[in-house]
Computed example of a mutant assay.
Amino acid sequence: MPDSRAARTITRRFAFGVVAAVLAMACVQFAPAALAVGGPPPSAVQPHPKRPAPPSAPTPRIDRSDGTTASGPVRVEEARMPFYVATKGKTTLYVLGTLHVGYASDYPADHPFRAPILAALDASPILALEISPDDLLFSQEDVQRYGVCRSECLLDYLPDWMWKKVEARMRSNPAALAQLRHTRPWLASMLVETYDTLKAGFQSEYGTEAQLQNVYLRAKGRIVGLETLNEQISTFTKLTSAQQREMLAQDLAQTPAENVADVKELHRLWRVGDADALKAWDDSKGEKLARSKAVAAAVDNRVVYERNRRFVTRMLALAAPNKPVFVAIGALHLGGERGVLELLRKNGFVVEAA
């Protein structure tokens, strides 16, 4: 079974969709028997001829030099996080950009969030996340159903050159490579990045959503989802074969060390708390890594911009005068010309950094 520490890592996509994090967490824990539950391959992906199984390789010594002390990450300054207040008359939406995993030092026990964030939580009868906690209980079942195959289907879905890159990237982790062979390209993409960023030391229990729920203790408050689990998963399963391969190709375009560096930069910018700066950085990275700009743009439209519009539609449906709603969604959904903040402005809201 692959190293379970892979469940504690972050990828660039984990700032876009909470299920990306949850699916990777679930998938790295699959036993071989669990791999037998996958259904038939999606019609959008056309198989390639079978290839021989790759040779196994010895497990390497694990490098644990991740910038932590024996007791955990070194204490750093309080994270600002991207946090905004959107108002329209007497209607208020508090909007926080999240990372779905993090470090313990991001949420100090005595003040896990800045005072304005805590005050906004206390004032809000509704906490709206991407997906409700109840929906996430079924995430592992759905990743098996939609992301994993009975057969070694990844070899069928990829052209030879791409499979060879996957094999070369994962050769030092034969258990992970064996697992990847049973995944469809969209899920393989997430897992390749997940294994690449093992050294970064992020943990799922320190994702923003989990920490928000820890402090959201209103007796009459409720937590809702802005989209269903099926809606978020279908974002990936409905990608065409070319789009799924584009996702994977981008993950293979850099070395593992380069991917780790990008993850740490994403985290640093999130701590600074400027949503537009985060989005500009991500756009620049996407421009650099895109194998096909047209296909990459189609992926971004489905994974980011279509969901931005859905989020805003449902935020507006929840909003009511004198009943603030606290919204917490992936940080990379907020900034930019097609981000959630700009969509709120176009709906008549005044949006200001808190």
Score class of each variant (00 low, 15 high):
5 R>H: 01
6 A>F: 03
7 A>H: 00
12 R>T: 00
12 R>E: 01
13 R>A: 00
16 F>M: 07
23 L>M: 11
23 L>Y: 03
27 C>P: 04
32 P>A: 05
34 A>R: 07
37 V>G: 08
37 V>L: 14
42 P>L: 03
43 S>E: 08
58 P>F: 03
59 T>M: 06
61 R>W: 02
67 G>L: 09
69 T>L: 09
69 T>C: 10
70 A>D: 01
72 G>N: 05
94 Y>P: 06
95 V>S: 13
105 S>V: 13
106 D>L: 08
106 D>F: 13
108 P>I: 12
112 P>C: 10
112 P>V: 09
117 I>T: 13
122 D>I: 03
122 D>Y: 03
123 A>Q: 10
124 S>M: 11
126 I>G: 07
127 L>G: 04
133 P>I: 10
134 D>N: 14
136 L>W: 05
141 E>M: 15
142 D>C: 15
146 Y>R: 13
150 R>T: 10
153 C>M: 05
155 L>Y: 08
156 D>W: 08
173 N>H: 10
174 P>Y: 08
175 A>I: 05
180 L>A: 05
180 L>S: 03
187 L>Y: 03
191 L>W: 00
191 L>I: 02
206 Y>I: 00
209 E>S: 10
210 A>R: 13
230 N>H: 15
232 Q>D: 13
233 I>N: 12
234 S>V: 06
236 F>M: 05
237 T>C: 09
244 Q>T: 01
247 M>W: 01
258 E>K: 04
268 R>P: 08
269 L>G: 06
273 G>S: 11
275 A>F: 10
280 A>P: 07
281 W>E: 11
282 D>E: 10
284 S>T: 13
285 K>H: 09
289 L>N: 00
295 V>W: 02
302 R>M: 02
310 R>V: 15
322 N>M: 15
328 A>D: 09
329 I>G: 11
340 V>Q: 14
341 L>I: 15
347 N>Y: 12
350 V>D: 04
352 E>M: 04
353 A>D: 14
